[in-house]
């Protein structure tokens, strides 16, 4: 059940990259409550990845404030890192390690040890359906298997807030279905910030979405509520096109 506890709060975040005149994000303000699945949507170049990078302590904002689980991210990044999980766009796994070795490595970095680590590894290998390939080198995996393994590495330590940056991109339908099923299973247990280009995914998974463009949130709300606000849009995808335009973004 979604509580009123604020797990992530961003206030007027601005990020200007060196040698760029336009800010990548410009006054981003949002608030995410416990157990919420927050969909951060937007076309290419909208600022989603920059926003996620700031929220996961990878980048420092030019201005603004940010807290995760009540901790100031800019002042206590090391403590925040112990509370969050990150599933990046890329398959960020060591290709020449087995899945089990990868998970053991990540688990140890998160402070898991001994029996607890071994149990957790088995649990999450099973969760992503890779029991038979657990001791194979990751480079031998198919694209879908790698994506599932990527997810397991991000949630192994059961984070308070999980950031997922397009976790299903380029995945076969079966793997995508499994990933979405598992994430649905975490709903209300783990707070999630989810970016995707697949609107139907966002519509089914996210309890709240914000559509960004040019570094700013242009609309936000529960998916059903947003669709309701625009009667001419039958779904989130139509709404997304209506708000961000049909021109190509490369």
């Amino acid at each position: 059940m979604v509580s009123d506890l604020i797990m992530l709060s961003a206030h007027r975040l601005v990020k200007v990259y060196p040698k760029k005149s336009q800010p990548a994000i410009n006054g981003l303000t949002l608030s995410i409550t416990e157990g919420e699945v927050f969909g951060l949507l937007g076309p290419n170049g909208a600022g989603k990845t920059t926003a996620i990078s700031i929220m996961t302590t990878l980048l420092k904002p030019t201005s603004g404030s940010l807290t995760v689980c009540g901790l100031d991210v800019l002042r206590y990044p090391a403590q925040v890192r112990g509370l969050i999980g990150f599933v990046p766009q890329e398959v960020a796994l060591y290709q020449n390690l087995t899945l089990r070795e990868n998970l053991r490595f990540f688990g140890r970095i998160y402070g898991l040890r001994g029996k607890e680590l071994a149990t957790r590894i088995s649990e999450f290998i099973e969760l992503v359906g890779l029991e038979e390939s657990a001791d194979s080198l990751v480079y031998t995996f198919s694209g879908g298997m790698k994506r599932r393994a990527n997810l397991a590495a991000g949630i192994l330590h059961k984070p308070k807030v999980l950031f997922l940056d397009e976790p299903t991109v380029g995945v076969d339908p079966q793997s995508r279905n499994l990933i979405l099923e598992r994430l649905t299973g975490f709903k209300e247990k783990i707070t999630m910030v989810y970016t995707t280009h697949y609107m139907e995914e966002a519509e089914s998974l996210c309890s709240y979405v914000a559509i960004m463009d040019a570094g700013q949130i242009i609309i936000e709300g529960a998916p059903a509520e947003l669709i309701h606000r625009f009667p001419d849009c039958p779904d989130l995808e139509a709404l997304f096109i209506k708000l961000t335009g049909k021109q190509l973004r490369d």
Binding site: R81, F86, P88, I109, Y110, G111, A153, G154, F163
Partner: peptide, 8 residues
């Protein structure tokens, strides 16, 4: 990027 979001 993943490593730098971890407690290390």
């Amino acid at each position: 990027a993943r490593l730098l979001t971890m407690p290390t």
